[in-house]
Amino acid sequence: MRLLEATEMTGGYGEMDILDSVDMGVDSGEIVSIIGPNGAGKSTAMKAIFGIVRLRKGQVSFAGEDITNAATETQVRRGMAYVPQERNIFPNLSVHENLEMGAFIREDGVAEALEHVYELFPPLREKMRQPAGELSGGQRQMVAIGRALMVEPKLLMLDEPTAGLSPLFMAEIFERIIAVNATGVGILMVEQNARQALEISHRGYVLSTGRNRFADSGANLLANEEVTKSFLGG
């Protein structure tokens, strides 16, 4: 089933359109990457889906429901979780409190979800009482993803989850993303480390100057000479 379907997304900040008729979709249980050069509108596309950037034209639907320009608060209730690239943790709250805040909208018990996150990210269990702001970059990213998983989302959206991380941590984060996906969570991510991202993705979208350029399976995109030459650095 199509979990997320975005068609002809057009819009941006203020008067200026960043997105020009962008189409995008994620099926249940898929990992989908958005890649492309700087300023291609990758993050903007993701923000538009989540409702942070307003769309002038086009449509976004989630699990069959029209959510175009819906209020961000309601997106979380529908089962979408979004991890921004920067400022994605509450630095003065402990790791544990960060995770608890992720489950703010849930009225039922969250012990199970907490346990699940700690199993996925064992380093967080050791540091659960520490202020999240004191953690290393890779661990902060784990807190951010863990926080998003607390609502047990159907779709997890990650904006450059490996930005600024060492190759070691990068590999670990990608590994965790696969593990999250294995529990049935659909994943849409924007990535600068395009090659690694496509390697773990079922499908990928290549954007450039706010438009769709290529859309194919991860493997096919990696095999496509034009894509590798223009967008993967040869």
């Binding site: 608060e73 979380v76 921004p84 509450f90 805040m101 703010f104 926080r147």
Partner: peptide, 8 residues
């Protein structure tokens, strides 16, 4: 971030 997280 609070808003994105779904905090009321």
């Amino acid at each position: 971030l609070a808003r994105i997280t779904g905090i009321a």
